[in-house]
Nucleic acid binder design. Sequence first.
DNA 1: GGCCTGCGTCAAGCTCGTGTCAAGCCGCGT
DNA 2: ACGCGGCTTGACACGAGCTTGACGCAGGCC
Lengths: 232, 232
Amino acid sequence: MPVTEPIRIVIIEDEASIRRFLRAGLPTGEVDWHEAENAAEGVRLVAQKNPHVVLLDLGLPDRDGLEVLRELREWTDVPVIILTARGQERDKVAALDGGADDYVTKPFSLGELMARVRVAVRHGSRMESIVDPIFRSDGLTIDFSARQVWVDGSEVRLTPTEYRLLALLAQHAGKVVTHRQLLKEVWGPGFEDSTHTLRVHMGSIRQKVDPDPTRPRFIRTETGVGYRLMVG
Amino acid sequence: MPVTEPIRIVIIEDEASIRRFLRAGLPTGEVDWHEAENAAEGVRLVAQKNPHVVLLDLGLPDRDGLEVLRELREWTDVPVIILTARGQERDKVAALDGGADDYVTKPFSLGELMARVRVAVRHGSRMESIVDPIFRSDGLTIDFSARQVWVDGSEVRLTPTEYRLLALLAQHAGKVVTHRQLLKEVWGPGFEDSTHTLRVHMGSIRQKVDPDPTRPRFIRTETGVGYRLMVG
DNA sequence: GGCCTGCGTCAAGCTCGTGTCAAGCCGCGT
DNA sequence: ACGCGGCTTGACACGAGCTTGACGCAGGCC
């Protein structure tokens, strides 16, 4: 899992010179950049790309920027940073109260703009990560964010390898995960043949969560193929 | 969504004239206004009032504003709007990347500021994760705003590094915090491999709050992964 | 029945992570 | 200059975790 996904930005701005200036100054590789030069195309692009941040010019040729903002706000909470030459207080207040998240007046510095973009991304991501992912099935509970496992309510302590194996099975709950898959994911490429080690580890996992392998509650072995975590 | 409750604002600003100017211009009845004229009082006030927004001046007499921001960010996500005369790009970027939510340079217009306050309140209410400035669990108490720690009622004195480590664990109470995470947060990027130093510090923390690591009350080591502060 | 293959268990050995002690370094205040 | 507190670094012992090998067992095939 990559730690730093590139920031997806949609800019809605008619002046090509501004777009070019921004595009040239972007940190390469960290930004996924999409340009629209009018309102209609901009809204379509936001819907299509689902960006982390939208940069919106107020002085568009086909429609007023505030209208575009209002239209976006009908269906998305994506952070919108207004990017405009209009520096009057009433414009700012109207935009901010109209749902904009920030307001930057031209001319602006690229560094400041990118810092404000990062703030907006921070705000956006914080809302998504409220619930932490938990796996439940029968008496087995796995809290991935806490890296904790319970069986019938009592906590079970797993070693790093054991946890990674069990988590991998849980991520594909109900489906068979092959030996090669498990070995490659946990030990890395080049260990696809250490199937004996894998069996020993599965054994110790079972000892902790599933004591009787002939009558398995959770982990079923699919002979010759791999293992499967059963779903209730 | 109309905010029925008045907006609670804490302003940390040494210049009395600015405070007076703002206080005079506030819409009466809609704002619950609290003033601090230095950093120490400001942090205390934030902890006490649990405001919707904090207005923070960077040029305080007793401490640098960025430090104050960093200290606040150790325990609260309350929106912070920087309010300062420093308009250099590097100041703005440093503050915004340091956890600030907005940056307004003096002289500013009152209308714009209040609009930005409303944006901040909007952001804050959306995540509604009001963090308690006091952490309690079993016999362990941590007051983030006062940087104080108690075990079974008696105060424990921690060094700066020890406190930051323990506070970090408390912020993710119940969850595993990896070695890399701890090292990066406390020592900064580039120190992710100094795991030995980390162990020594964890040792001295334990000596003070959790004398027997084989039967831990609070800090459990997750071998090969990191540490976890247990919750009752 | 004998053989092979795949799987599970157990024990032993080894590696590596961990905790602790002590020494040395640095910054700071007296 | 000196002492002190805090941080880092090194040495070392201990234990947890991982790997490896031996063995028993079940099922399929000749």
